[in-house]
Design a protein around this nucleic acid. Structure first.
Length: 214
DNA sequence: AACTCGGGGCA
DNA sequence: TGCCCAGAGTT
């Protein structure tokens, strides 16, 4: 099976079997989304959702956050991963938003990644959710599942390589759905150490399944 | 390319 | 108590 055929089967799967997820935007403004996504690095959504209500209540805008101090902000996010780093990032990030971006959230990957705590993956999530751009945010799930399926070359070493191959071959209108699906599939089915192939709906075009004949 | 930053969940 | 999870920044 060629890579081209895998992509055709992949897109066919989305068009027939995977509806557009109802992604209710759970944040009332772009700043909240940015902060939540920065906090999400190496951390589950459930843990983020525990801290965001109080955080956004007391630091609703870049100005409020930029004018606070480490000891004020830290307690709000002490239960997320890497709270020291993220507190520093959020303080520097909010200051930069106020001073260089007129307290608005930038629209380009280049500008977003210039913000502290925002890497390539986070920036892609932002432009995808906030600006409806067909961006593919490559986390460990997307990275692993894409390679297993055979949607990207087995020699791909960096998330950026995987991202470029995926966006090159998946039609724009399916990028968002594909991203959503790859993450859930990686989390619940295509597990890192023990793939649950018996639960998988798309073994008919999976390179990993084909090779290992599970 | 390898290392560091740290919590929570769960066996 | 110890293993597992999961990106950005720095060297």
């Amino acid at each position: 099976m060629t890579k081209k055929e895998r992509y055709e089967a992949f897109v066919k799967y989305f068009s027939e079997s995977y509806p557009q997820p109802e992604t209710e935007l759970q944040y009332s403004n772009p700043f909240e989304l940015l902060v939540a996504v920065v906090l999400s690095a190496q951390c589950t959504d459930a843990r983020i959702n525990k801290v965001t209500p109080a955080l956004f209540r007391d630091f609703p805008t870049p100005e409020y956050m930029a004018s606070s101090h480490f000891d004020e902000l830290f307690p709000y996010i002490r239960s997320v991963s890497y709270p020291n780093n993220k507190t520093k990032h959020l303080l520097a990030l909010s200051k930069k938003l106020v001073e260089e971006f007129n307290s608005e959230i930038p629209t380009t990957i280049k500008e977003l990644t210039s913000l502290q705590g925002v890497g390539r993956k986070t920036a892609n999530v932002i432009v995808s959710v906030l600006y409806n751009q067909p961006a593919m945010a490559v986390d460990t799930h997307v990275f692993r599942v894409s390679k297993r399926l055979g949607l990207v070359t087995q020699t791909a070493k960096t998330p950026l390589e995987v991202e470029r191959q995926l966006v090159k071959h998946i039609p724009e209108e399916y990028i968002s759905r594909a991203h959503h699906w790859l993450i859930l599939h990686g989390r619940y089915v295509c597990l890192a150490r023990k793939p649950q192939c018996e639960k998988c709906e798309i073994i008919h075009f999976c390179k990993y399944f084909e090779k290992n004949k599970l």
